[in-house]
Design a protein around this nucleic acid. Structure first.
Length: 296
DNA sequence: GCCCAGGACTATG
DNA sequence: CATAGTCATGGG
């Protein structure tokens, strides 16, 4: 199965971001491929993406290779890699700003890697709140290996994120042993229950009239603050204007580029983002990219 | 030992 | 509405 590539796209850049020298259990990267397991109609499917000349070459490694499955994988990849977006306007704006113009060259073709599953995105936020990313990925792996789904292929395990049902019924003691804080255990199980009871879902969020209403609906849930709400809107709904205010990595990147003087310099932050109206979330993503060394 | 980490909640002026 | 304290533990 092939997925054609339109516009500026770099598989290499996307692959680099998926790895970033972190141990993300939700996918597996190699030098020229990424493998990921997802659920299609509740059935686990493992696929692999490689780069062709003008297309992505997708192979199904596990699961029924039907037209329905292929279509679902294709849709997922489009959403995951944001393939339908035309970045030319973003690059125009980037290249005309002295502090970040280099990004339009160095990171050319990097797409905002999303988290299509709303529940997974929110849980990942909870897990990552106020701890370093290395530790966050470590605890996420423990959670996913215990409560998630698994596909084994050629001796290697690939995981799907735990369902709300599985996490809602998870043992608080076991979660504590995984080194989640007491508060995070309450948040995770609480949010899983909210999803299980269908008091929150991607469809429900999409039905709301505007971003403000979506932020309000998300932050009404215990454990979801404004940072988590905006991170989720950026990664799952791909709201272009969504900025995870207060994000430690974002603020450090802005300081490193001398765009803000310190972490409380909100005036300079707002002025900077005003210049990139409509592409705020992409800019945040590129700033995160800038935090790590080239070609990691 | 110290400070920070891709925060959120609650209590207090 | 703005600030302070609390949680909880790894990484540098």
């Amino acid at each position: 199965m092939n997925i054609p590539i339109n516009g500026t796209f770099s598989f290499r850049e996307c692959l680099w971001f998926l790895n970033r020298n972190f141990d993300d259990c939700m996918h597996t990267t190699g030098v020229d491929y990424v493998r990921k397991a997802i659920l299609i109609n509740d059935q686990p499917v493992l696929f692999e993406i490689r780069e062709g000349k003008q297309e992505l070459v997708v192979s199904i490694l596990h699961g029924n290779n039907t037209a329905v499955t292929q279509k679902a994988i294709e849709d997922f990849i489009h959403e995951w890699f944001d393939l339908s977006r035309d970045l030319s306007q973003f690059y125009d704006q980037l290249s005309s700003h002295k502090d970040v113009s280099y990004m339009s060259r160095d990171f050319a073709g990097l797409r905002l890697i999303g988290i299509p599953d709303l529940f997974e995105a929110i849980c990942w936020c909870i897990i990552g709140q106020q701890i370093n990313l290395t530790f966050a990925y470590k605890t996420k792996r423990r959670l996913v290996e215990k409560y998630g789904g698994k596909v084994t292929y050629e001796g290697q395990d690939y995981y799907t994120f735990p369902s709300p049902e599985a996490l809602a019924d998870a043992s608080p003691d076991i979660l504590r042993e995984m080194q989640f804080s007491g508060q995070k255990v309450v948040y995770l199980i609480g949010i899983a229950t909210v999803f299980k009871e269908e008091r929150m879902s991607k469809a429900l969020l999409l039905a709301l009239p505007d971003v403000a209403a979506q932020q309000k609906a998300l932050t009404a849930i215990k454990g979801i603050g404004i940072w988590t709400a905006n991170y989720t809107l950026m990664k799952t709904l791909r709201i272009p204007s969504s900025i995870p205010y207060g994000d430690a990595g974002l603020l450090n990147a802005l300081i490193a580029h001398k765009i803000i003087s310190d972490k409380k310099d909100l005036d300079a932050l707002n002025e900077f983002f005003r210049y990139f109206k409509g592409w705020e979330s992409y800019l945040v993503f590129y700033l995160w990219r800038s935090l790590a060394p080239q070609n990691g």
